[in-house]
């Protein structure tokens, strides 16, 4: 079964992680049958987004199966616009990500900076996709409101850490809100829950590589009580449908 991994990081973490070079990542992709992978720059996420995007572009230029998210920083909207103009027109960049609430940038999902960035993203109609990491259900609620407000943008909730008891009814009808399944220790039936609630077509495979390992999440999908066709959709076809540039 072929896989597209929409959530990966390029760079060295501040944790004991060996997997940082192209060859090791390609070997891991071959091992897990990952055909294409979308990275965001780790340096861009935790430190300097401009430096990170520049480095990532060089990596993407060398490897045909590698794609990228553009990192931006809500505290630097003007500089973020410049990055968007520089990279979003390129075929290898698919949208903005991984954007973060709190944590590394200490900003709410709907901060004025992020809002300006989302407004600017509308200038790039082929790339209106955002992979967002939301800390806590309060920020998930904010993301849901943003998804309603910016209906032209596809919002992907990284790690799918949504409390369906709180938001389940509300998110059912939001057509531009998607979910990516990596993340530590959700309940055993998490994938089934998401599929039953949202439908299979809203769910993407992601691994959070190189922080985490794709095998964990491949196992999670394979172990879930869903049909083979639904598994294929999550592993591959949903991403192919939404990220059209991956067909190139």
């Amino acid at each position: 079964m072929k896989i597209i991994d929409i959530h990966a990081h390029w760079g060295k973490w501040f944790f004991p992680i060996y997997l940082t070079d192209t060859e090791s990542i390609l070997a891991k992709m071959r091992r897990e049958n990952i055909e294409k992978i979308i990275f965001s720059s780790l340096k861009g996420l935790v430190y300097d987004f401009r430096e990170g995007n520049k480095e990532l572009k060089k990596v993407l230029d060398r490897e045909s199966s590698f794609y990228g998210w553009v990192e931006v920083n809500p505290h630097y909207p003007k500089e973020s616009f410049e990055e968007m103009e520089r990279y979003l027109p390129l075929d290898k960049f698919v949208g903005l990500g991984e954007l973060y609430s709190n944590g590394y940038v200490d900003s709410k999902v709907d901060s004025p900076g992020y809002r300006k960035i989302l407004e600017k993203l509308l200038d790039f109609p082929r790339k209106t996709r955002v992979l967002f990491h939301c800390t806590g259900q309060e920020n998930v609620g904010r993301l849901i409101r943003l998804a309603k407000e910016f209906s032209q943008i596809i919002f992907i909730l990284a790690h799918a850490n949504i409390d369906l008891e709180i938001f389940g009814k509300e998110v059912k009808d939001i057509s531009n809100l998607y979910f990516e399944i990596s993340g530590a220790n959700p309940p055993f039936n998490r994938i089934e829950e998401l599929v039953n609630h949202m439908g299979t077509e809203k769910i993407f495979f992601g691994s959070d590589l190189n922080l985490l390992n794709p095998a964990t999440f491949i196992g999670r999908v394979k172990d879930s009580a869903i049909s083979p066709r639904e598994r294929e959709a999550i592993f591959y076809y949903n991403a192919l449908r939404i990220f059209r540039e991956l067909n190139i």
């Binding site: 935790v46 430190y47 300097d48 987004f49 430096e51 920083n73 505290h75 630097y76 590394y104 940038v105 200490d106 900003s107």
Partner: peptide, 9 residues
Amino acid sequence: FGFYPIKKL
């Protein structure tokens, strides 16, 4: 010195 990711400075 460097870059400050959590506030514009």
